Amino acid sequence: MLRKIDHKKMGSSESRWLKSLFHFSFANYHNPNNINFGVLRVVNDDLVSADTGFDMHPHRDMEIITYVLDGELTHEDNMGNRNTISRGHVQYMSAGTGIYHSEHNLGKDVLRLLQIWIFPDKKDHKPNYGDFRTDEKDRKNKWFHMVSAKNGEAPIQINQDTNFYVIELDKDKETEFLMGSDRQAYIVQIEGSSEINDVNLIERDAMEVVEENLKIKALENIHLLVIEMKKA
């Protein structure tokens, strides 16, 4: 099963400093038929103006992954962590029993990021933070396994049976993504346009996939994220 999701039909919001595209219900965008996809609860595509950001605020019982696409993101939390990451880098936070953090764009350019929330395998995990800095070569014309479960092999490991893969594929190149039985995935067309099993996606579109292998062709240089998980 494949279902294309047109980014022009997603939820959105815009303020003087933040422009967001909501793949699922979030903030003042509420669609009772679009709350989650399996354990995937949130995918927000955010554009954050320079010298602005999200001030200190709480989270609880959620696995939160932030993937930076352009600009710089500075994270600070009540556990004493403070780090700045940039394009291709990923940040992980297990909110668990409760955590406060802030996220700011202290740079001069607009920050674009994907913030992704995953339901944990249980409540009340010990809060945790980590980040991983990748090179473009890690994902250039090949899949990079960025996030896995605790028993997996990815550099970022979370409290859920979920895998994140990214790829930057050159124009006209092709690749495959094999889906196991009883598995599903959510695809984000981060940049460029592609053809996936004869379905065209353009920048910021998405696709739900259930138990179906994928043949992917880059119609131009593309950047794709695949969030793979157990079938709901």
Rank of each mutant, 00 (worst) to 15 (best):
M1F: 03
L2C: 05
K4W: 07
K4A: 10
H7N: 11
K8N: 15
K9S: 09
M10W: 03
M10G: 07
S13D: 14
S15K: 00
W17P: 00
K19G: 02
L21N: 13
L21P: 08
L21M: 14
F22W: 13
H23E: 13
S25V: 12
N28F: 12
N31H: 10
N31V: 08
F37E: 01
F37M: 08
V43M: 04
D45P: 13
L47T: 13
A50I: 04
A50R: 06
T52G: 07
F54C: 04
M56N: 03
M56L: 00
H57G: 02
P58K: 10
P58W: 04
D61I: 07
T66Y: 08
T66G: 09
V68D: 10
D70T: 15
D70H: 15
L73I: 11
H75D: 07
M79R: 13
N83H: 11
N83D: 14
N83F: 15
T84K: 06
T84I: 10
I85C: 05
G88H: 03
G88Y: 02
V90W: 07
Q91H: 03
Y92Q: 03
Y92L: 05
A95G: 03
A95H: 00
T97P: 08
I99Y: 01
S102D: 08
E103K: 01
H104C: 02
L106H: 15
G107K: 00
G107R: 04
G107I: 02
L113W: 03
L114S: 04
L114D: 01
L114W: 03
W117A: 08
I118T: 11
I118S: 08
D121W: 04
K123N: 13
D124I: 07
H125A: 02
N128I: 05
D131L: 07
T134W: 08
D135G: 11
D135F: 09
E136G: 09
D138R: 09
W143S: 00
V147Q: 03
S148P: 06
S148V: 01
S148K: 00
A149K: 11
K150Q: 04
G152M: 05
G152E: 05
E153W: 00
P155F: 08
P155L: 07
I156W: 00
I156L: 15
I156Y: 02
I156R: 05
Q157W: 08
Q160L: 11
Q160V: 11
D161W: 11
T162Q: 14
N163H: 14
N163M: 07
F164W: 06
Y165K: 04
V166Y: 03
I167L: 10
I167E: 02
E168P: 03
D170P: 00
D170K: 10
K173Q: 05
E174I: 04
T175R: 04
F177L: 05
L178K: 09
M179P: 05
D182L: 10
R183H: 14
Q189H: 03
I190T: 00
E191H: 07
E191T: 10
G192I: 04
S193V: 10
S194R: 12
I196F: 08
D198W: 07
L201N: 03
L201T: 13
E203A: 14
R204A: 13
R204S: 14
E208N: 13
E211L: 02
E211R: 05
E212N: 09
L214C: 13
I216W: 00
K217Y: 02
K217Q: 06
E220S: 15
I227Q: 04
E228S: 15
M229N: 14
M229L: 12
K230I: 11
K230S: 12
K231M: 14
A232I: 15
